[in-house]
């Protein structure tokens, strides 16, 4: 029906085409019958109605035939779906973390990304982990969708991509204000490319090389962690205040119900990441952001600070 790029596509589309075919047959058939009756038996052409006796045979027939048809549909739907529920034991394991309103993906070797990079023709098992409310992991091109339920054990999805390319991941379960911007991408690569990316030493380094562009790393980080879903980089205010042009300024925040003025500095940024509700910038609502304690290290915060500095310098 639409672009398909996983092993599930065939089963799903077959079931769809079967149901669609039967549906069109009945829809067109019955509609034409009605139109024919309106033409043939309208008051002018047929001024006198002829009583018709109920026929039990006919009624049984049109009960039994649909039952057989829907049982067939049920069967094809079942056959197309059952592989989705049976993930193989071997494959690339990824944990998808969802929060309002971003995804990120953590691989077994610790690599984290905001896009889901996967190899072609290999099973990818995605453990779904929702941090706040319900989200749903939906890749139309792969025909998979599974809700991400906070606290649910064995919440997983899997797929095997068949075509190289990049496809949209949507959040399909309404999750609040920025629900429609909770998007990501799945990038299907040739196996070799994927493993190169997966084992890319540059992405793995613990120590940052001295000549590295810290601000650039910071930019990559805020994108990978999904910060930009709520904090713009261009000065416009979304759910939270923009990152741009604020570093070093004096801002007004509400702390414990009291307004106060503080400097937008490293200390403030750290507190905002670990205890988001401690100081709320005036004009914004508390309770919108979860703490990133344990998810963003202090070293990473330094990168973010560098990046924010660079935004103010531009």
């Amino acid at each position: 029906m639409i672009l398909g790029a996983s092993t599930f596509v065939e089963g799903v589309d077959n079931a769809f085409m079967l149901i669609l075919g039967i549906s069109f047959f009945f829809l067109i058939g019955i509609t034409l019958t009605i139109i024919l009756f309106i033409y043939r038996y309208n008051e002018k052409r047929n001024p006198k109605a002829t009583p018709v006796k109920d026929s039990v045979t006919l009624e049984v027939t049109w009960t039994v035939i649909p039952i057989i048809l829907v049982l067939g549909m049920f069967y094809y739907g079942y056959v197309g779906w059952i592989p989705m529920k049976r993930p193989p034991s071997e494959g690339v394991m990824v944990t998808a973390n969802a929060r309002m309103w971003s995804f990120n993906f953590r691989y077994e070797n610790g690599r984290v990304s905001d896009k889901l990079y996967v190899p072609k023709d290999t099973a990818v098992i995605v453990n779904l982990n929702a941090l706040d409310v319900l989200h749903s992991f939906y890749i139309p091109a792969f025909r998979i969708k599974e809700d991400m339920v906070p606290g649910l054990a064995n919440n997983r999805s899997w797929f095997e991509a068949t075509k190289v390319g990049s496809y949209t991941i949507f959040c399909a379960e309404y999750c609040g204000l920025q629900h429609s911007y909770m998007l990501s991408e799945v990038v299907v690569m040739e196996q070799e490319d994927f493993w190169n990316w997966y084992n890319d030493p540059d992405a793995m380094v613990e120590e940052i090389p001295e000549d590295a562009n810290l601000a650039l790393l910071g930019r990559q980080l805020v994108q990978a962690k999904g910060c930009v879903a709520c904090h713009s980089l261009d000065g416009s205010n979304l759910v939270g205040p923009s990152f741009a042009g604020r570093f070093g300024e004096t801002i007004t925040v509400i702390t414990g119900g009291q307004e106060r003025e503080i400097e937008y500095n490293e200390e403030y940024i750290t507190r905002s990441i670990y205890e988001p509700d401690a100081d709320i910038s005036v004009g914004f609502r508390p309770g919108q952001m979860l703490s990133y304690e344990g998810e963003i290290t202090e070293q990473e915060i330094e990168l973010i600070v560098e990046f924010m500095k660079s935004l103010s310098e531009e």
Binding site: F8, G11, V12, A15, F16, I19, L20, I22, S23, F26, L27, I30, T31, I34, I38, V70, M73, F74, Y76, G77, Y78, V79, G80, W81, M84, S136, Y138, P140, R143, I144, K145, E146, A172, E173
Partner: peptide, 30 residues
């Protein structure tokens, strides 16, 4: 009444797409 039958058929038949497991996974919440 007649247009009811027509739209109701469309509604009902597309309900079959939603009732079938494989297709539901794709079109649910869309």
């Amino acid at each position: 009444a007649v247009s009811f039958i027509f739209v109701f058929m469309i509604g009902g038949l597309t309900g079959l797409v939603l009732g079938s497991l494989a297709t539901n996974v794709h079109v649910h919440d869309t």
